[in-house]
Simulated scan of single mutants.
Amino acid sequence: MKTRHKRMALILGGLAVLGVIAALVLNAFQSNLVFFFSPTQVAAGEAPKGKPFRIGGMVKEGSLRREVDGVTMRFVVTDTEKDMTVAYKGILPDLFKEGKGAVAQGRLGDDGVFVASEVLAKHDENYMPPEAAKAVGDAHARALANKAAVEATAKTVRQ
């Protein structure tokens, strides 16, 4: 075999190894990728079925309940437009409170309850996860737009 052919075989072998490594890294990245959805997006069917994702918003006042088993907690996360019930088996973070922002990671159950494997709470009174803040802001803006449209229609009808 000529030196030129050896060099070409070595280059092709190196490229094949790099290709396999790149495929493995991309596969690992894809399997660990978790997207964020608001309760409104989940209700609209935009969330993946059978795959983990994150849901976030404000924990609804008066919604925190402990199940009979003593370990499972249920609460409602809202973006002010839609509500999503979350079930979490474990100890909630110390900063987790009703009326505060939270993000839960898990899967949507067949019964429509989000089964969380991890719950994250905001770390101070000025912070809300950017995705949750955007979802709450978007829902609030839609609610204001709907209210304005209803008022405009009522005003037109009165005239």
Rank of each mutant, 00 (worst) to 15 (best):
L12H: 05
R65G: 00
V77S: 01
V150T: 13
V42W: 00
V77Y: 00
K97Y: 10
V103D: 01
F75E: 11
G62P: 03
A154V: 08
T85S: 00
G109K: 12
V42Q: 02
S31L: 00
Y88N: 14
G99D: 08
G62C: 07
R66I: 10
A141T: 12
R107N: 11
V77L: 09
V77W: 02
F29I: 07
L33G: 01
A22E: 10
K155H: 03
D83N: 15
A9V: 07
L10V: 13
P129Y: 08
K134P: 04
I55T: 14
V76Q: 04
T3H: 09
A87V: 03
E61F: 12
A141Q: 12
E81W: 01
I21V: 14
G112R: 05
L108Q: 13
D138T: 04
P93G: 15
N32G: 13
A44H: 08
A44F: 04
E125F: 02
A135V: 04
L15D: 02
I11P: 02
S63F: 08
L95N: 14
V103Q: 03
A44S: 13
A87H: 00
A133Q: 13
G112D: 10
T153A: 15
E118I: 09
E61S: 05
P48W: 09
G101Q: 06
L10E: 14
H140Y: 09
A148W: 03
I55C: 06
G13W: 06
G90E: 08
R107A: 15
D110M: 12
A149H: 08
L92I: 12
K155E: 07
F96H: 11
D124T: 04
R65Q: 12
F53Y: 09
E125A: 03
V119E: 04
A104T: 06
L108D: 00
Y88M: 13
N146G: 06
F36I: 07
Q105N: 09
A149V: 07
E81P: 03
K82N: 12
A143H: 11
S38R: 00
K147M: 14
K155I: 00
L33R: 15
M1R: 13
A143V: 09
H123L: 06
V115G: 08
S117F: 07
M73S: 14
K100P: 02
L10C: 12
D111N: 12
Q41N: 04
V59G: 02
N146V: 09
P52T: 14
V150M: 08
D110C: 04
R158K: 15
A23E: 05
G14Q: 09
K89H: 10
G19I: 03
V34N: 12
V113N: 09
K60T: 02
K82Y: 00
H123Q: 11
K51P: 05
D79L: 04
P52H: 13
M58H: 01
E81S: 10
K51D: 12
V20W: 06
A104F: 01
H140E: 12
K82P: 04
V68W: 08
E125I: 00
G62S: 07
S117C: 07
R158G: 10
K82T: 10
I11C: 05
A28T: 05
D83A: 04
V113R: 08
K82C: 12
F114V: 10
N32C: 03
I21S: 15
L33D: 02
L10D: 05
G99P: 06
A9L: 14
G62D: 05
P39E: 03
P93E: 14
D79G: 06
K60C: 01
R4C: 06
A43V: 11
R74D: 03
A133F: 07
A16M: 09
V113Q: 09
E67F: 00
